[in-house]
């Protein structure tokens, strides 16, 4: 697929290298999708044009199909069990690693956000906040269980405790208005809690979603734990919400009709629906351990306590 070289792309290179001018032809990235730890093109062969505010083409993005989504769910299902069973400490380190990788590519993301219309200041803020958010959730991986667990003092001779466990496979339609922060703020708590995720990136801010997939891919995140597809919410929300092997669904878009359709479809297999459409990712309320517990099931376990002679600790 040939790419149009735009003025904007040249400028980018100038900025990055701090070189005044170059005549060198830029090597442009093909933005693919991210499924099962690999970067395939959409099986449909379709694309949509992502343009900047002046109408210049930024990239031809994959217009993912329901089959791409299906493939992503298969990958996510395969990855979810082993991911949930990893030591929480290990998940913590991997999330931290994602933060490290993003920090290292900070400039690229700032630049992509600017290409998609952000001011330099707000792009820098968004990338910084995204990195910090990953670090925030990295820290939660081995702590939320303690916050949301309980020992339940039942009246019978049983030991009884409740712990959170990952819900499983989570599908998400992410915020349309932010390219990186909205995506990171949804993916991080979901995977911190041991789930796998298929995220549909913002249609109009898709560039850094795929670049973020590259960050994930170089951060020891097992393939299939995070899957990112690009495309149109309008076309995919129905198929995404009817899939019977998805356990939980996040809606962070802004279309009330879509949300309603998703909620109706969710009933087919009693999916949990999380409506994040009103969340301000840019604020303090955009991060909390409760975003982790949203995708946790409480498991309560009982076991008898043997006490033959009525023995007591008597201290």
């Amino acid at each position: 697929m040939a790419k149009t070289v735009t003025k904007k792309n040249v400028k980018v290179l100038e900025n990055i290298n701090g070189v005044a001018k170059t005549n060198r032809l830029l090597v442009l990235k093909t933005y693919k999708i991210y499924i099962g730890g690999k970067f395939p093109r959409t099986e449909s062969g379709r694309y949509y044009e992502l343009k900047d505010s002046s109408g210049n083409l930024l990239a031809n993005m994959c217009l993912s199909s329901r089959k791409d989504y299906r493939n992503a769910v298969v990958a996510a299902r395969g990855a979810s069990g082993p991911w949930a069973e990893r030591a929480a400490f290990n998940r913590s380190q991997i999330l931290y690693r994602i933060g490290e990788m993003l920090e290292g590519r900070r400039a690229q993301f700032v630049d992509e956000l600017m290409q998609m219309g952000s001011s330099k200041l707000s792009a820098e803020q968004e990338v910084d906040l995204s990195i910090d958010r990953l670090i925030y959730y990295a820290g939660w991986c081995d702590k939320y269980t303690q916050i949301f667990s309980s020992i339940n003092p039942v009246a019978s001779a049983h030991f009884n405790f409740s712990v959170p466990e990952a819900t499983g496979v989570v599908a998400a339609i992410t915020s349309e208005s932010t390219g990186l922060l909205g995506l990171v703020s949804i993916i991080a708590p979901v995977i911190a809690g041991g789930n796998s995720i298929i995220a549909l990136a913002s249609e109009t801010h898709a560039l850094c979603a795929i670049s973020f997939a590259e960050v994930i891919n170089s951060s020891d995140v097992p393939g299939g734990v995070v899957n990112i597809i690009t495309g149109k919410e309008d076309e995919l929300h129905k198929h995404m919400s009817t899939h019977m092997d998805v356990n939980s669904f996040i809606y962070a878009g802004s279309n009330a009709e879509h949300l309603k359709t998703i909620q109706v479809n969710a009933a087919d297999n009693v999916k949990r629906i999380l409506d994040y459409s009103k969340v301000e990712w840019n604020s303090e309320e955009g991060q909390s351990p409760y975003f982790i517990s949203d995708h946790q099931e409480t498991k309560t376990t009982w076991h008898p306590i043997e006490n033959i002679g009525g023995s007591s600790s008597k201290y």
């Binding site: 009884n160 498991k299 009982w302």
Partner: peptide, 15 residues
């Protein structure tokens, strides 16, 4: 709810 070495136990404190 998982009952180990027991079954069908209920208690107000137990989710």
């Amino acid at each position: 709810v998982v009952w180990a070495n027991t079954y069908n136990k209920f208690d107000p404190t137990s989710p």
